[in-house]
Amino acid sequence: MSETSDHPSGRASFDDGRYLYCLVGLDGEDRRTNQFARGVDGGRPYLVSEERVGAVVQHCECQFDSDRPETVKEWLLQHQTVVDEAGQVFGTPLPFRFDTVLTGDDNKVRDWLAEESSTLLNALNELEGLWEYRIELVWNLERQNDEVEDNERLAAIREQRDNTSAGKAHLLQKEYERRQARLAERRRQDVICNLQERLAELVQEVHSVDRSRAPALTDRQSGSDEARHMTAILASTQHEANIGEYLDTITSKPGLAVRFTGPWPPYSFAPTIGQDQ
């Protein structure tokens, strides 16, 4: 194993390492030696294979870290482009999280592939032919508030508020807003539950994306006038049309917009490997 140390920039550095893009499944007689696009930071990605599993890697001697958004953007673009290419050639890849590095040379990669071959093959088989799609629901809160105004209880409070003293009207207005917000939230949850129940009938796997896990990263934060919810699904491209048809029925709801993106490599459905070791 290569020794790791602190790079003057603060990054971990090592004698020899392999930046990991993704894992791919290889057919028994597969001898494709794919030429990949330029990799992260100008590196040259290539395939290291061991039996029926391949790892797309590139040589590196330190972590990637930068405070320049343009640089990071370029690295992420390069990472994703290489993973996309691997997917085109070998089918659904198992994508690594950005900046995952194995310390050591190609033989070390092969040793690791051999050691974990059973786990890796199972994971590749489970994801074969499946891709990640993401469905974002965006509510316009003002329009949603308008929509719930016909609620009987809200109407009663409104009437009370409009026929009482200024002081009491203020308290009733606060209660009105609280109930309005609760009602709108309940309706949003109903939409999300219905969406995920319907999707579960159509696709392999469904889960909500917890955007609070990385508040400092790129998640678009909901403005005060909107609410957002993201669902990630694992599905075959053959199911895109059925999913799209169902989403069309949701977009007819006032004040609700739907974004349907993909297919992406199954980043959100990739396993943890070697956890019990």
Binding site: H79, P95, A123, R134, L217, W264, G274
Partner: peptide
């Protein structure tokens, strides 16, 4: 509707690449 890979969608993917993907628990992996 059909799924897209618009530039707006790429913002989500940036976050996904940073947060998700295969996680390896092994001494040889950083």
């Amino acid at each position: 509707m059909r799924p897209t890979r618009s530039d707006d969608a790429a913002v989500d993917l940036v976050d996904v690449i940073l947060r998700e993907g295969v996680v390896v628990e092994a001494d040889v992996v950083i």
